[in-house]
Computed example of a mutant assay.
Amino acid sequence: MTGSPRPARLMDGTALARRLTDETTAAATALHRRTGTTPCLATVLVGEDPASVTYVRMKRNRCAQAGIRSRHLALPAATSTARLVDAIGELSADPDVHGILLQHPVGPHLDERAAFEAIAPAKDVDGVTTHSFAAMGFGLPGFVSCTPGGIMRLLDEYRVELSGKHAVVVGRSAILGKPAGLLLLGRDATVTYCHSRTRDLPSLLREADVLVAAVGKPDFIRGEHLKPGAVVIDAGYNPGNTGDVHFASARERAGLITPVPGGVGPMTIAVLLAQTVRAATRQLGLD
Results as ranks from 00 to 15, higher is better:
residue 210 V to F: 09
residue 40 C to D: 03
residue 128 V to T: 08
residue 39 P to T: 02
residue 244 D to F: 02
residue 30 A to S: 14
residue 71 R to N: 08
residue 52 S to P: 04
residue 71 R to P: 01
residue 137 G to K: 00
residue 212 V to A: 06
residue 256 L to V: 09
residue 27 A to T: 05
residue 31 L to R: 11
residue 174 A to P: 00
residue 24 T to I: 03
residue 92 S to Q: 08
residue 41 L to H: 08
residue 107 G to Y: 02
residue 83 R to C: 00
residue 265 G to P: 02
residue 123 K to W: 13
residue 273 L to E: 05
residue 97 V to Q: 06
residue 72 H to G: 09
residue 266 P to L: 07
residue 281 T to H: 03
residue 251 R to H: 06
residue 36 G to Q: 12
residue 48 E to A: 14
residue 196 S to E: 02
residue 156 D to W: 06
residue 14 T to C: 06
residue 146 C to I: 04
residue 189 A to H: 09
residue 241 N to C: 11
residue 86 D to H: 12
residue 278 R to T: 15
residue 107 G to S: 14
residue 283 Q to N: 01
residue 174 A to D: 08
residue 12 D to Q: 06
residue 242 T to L: 13
residue 227 K to P: 08
residue 37 T to P: 01
residue 93 A to R: 15
residue 173 S to F: 07
residue 145 S to C: 10
residue 275 Q to K: 07
residue 186 G to Y: 09
residue 54 T to H: 12
residue 233 I to D: 05
residue 266 P to K: 07
residue 70 S to K: 08
residue 106 V to M: 12
residue 114 A to W: 06
residue 243 G to S: 00
residue 263 G to E: 10
residue 67 G to F: 05
residue 87 A to L: 05
residue 106 V to G: 07
residue 278 R to E: 15
residue 248 A to S: 09
residue 139 G to R: 10
residue 44 V to S: 15
residue 243 G to C: 04
